[in-house]
């Protein structure tokens, strides 16, 4: 499937799609989007790249093993869930919010970190599964 067009397009598309996925993640609290969708888009972006340029190229690009994202994402999610317990003494999963609005993002809170964790886990899971399978075929 290494057609030239796909190759060229995917190289350009990859950063755009990643950017888009982060955008979707960040706006998820206000508009359609969120960690799941963002993570899936990012995963698809990488997989598209892998199809066009070969798996090794993509692996080289990512550098780390995608499976590594899973524990990182889980840790972020768990920490943001536990943050209220640690910082304010509220029960776990209580939302914590930074008072002021931030440009573009709107309000920042523990929910956003949680969603980021979800985002990373989803990327990690999808890429691990697809990469593992395509390697072993």
């Amino acid at each position: 499937m290494k057609s030239l067009i796909l190759k060229t397009v995917s190289t350009t598309l990859l950063p755009l799609l990643i950017l888009f996925s982060v955008f979707v993640l960040l706006r998820g609290h206000y508009l359609p989007g969120g960690g799941f969708i963002g993570g899936l888009i990012a995963a698809i972006a990488f997989i598209l790249h892998a199809f066009a340029n070969g798996l090794d190229q993509t692996r080289k690009l990512i550098r780390i093993h995608p499976g590594f994202l899973i524990p990182v994402g889980l840790a972020i999610a768990i920490l943001s869930a536990l943050a209220p317990v640690i910082f304010t003494g509220d029960p776990a999963m209580t939302g914590l919010w930074y008072e002021k609005d931030i440009a573009i993002l709107g309000k920042i809170g523990s929910a956003l970190f949680f969603d980021t964790g979800v985002y990373l886990v989803v990327i990690g899971v999808c890429l691990t599964i697809i990469f593992t399978i395509s390697e072993s075929v």
């Binding site: 998820g28 609290h29 206000y30 508009l31 359609p32 989007g33 969120g34 960690g35 799941f36 999963m93 939302g95 919010w97 309000k107 809170g109 929910a111 949680f114 969603d115 979800v118």
Partner: peptide, 14 residues
């Protein structure tokens, strides 16, 4: 309570 406007996402993450 959760300062979010996408209700589905608020349910999921909060």
């Amino acid at each position: 309570l959760a300062k979010g406007k996408n209700v589905v996402n608020v349910i999921l993450v909060d």
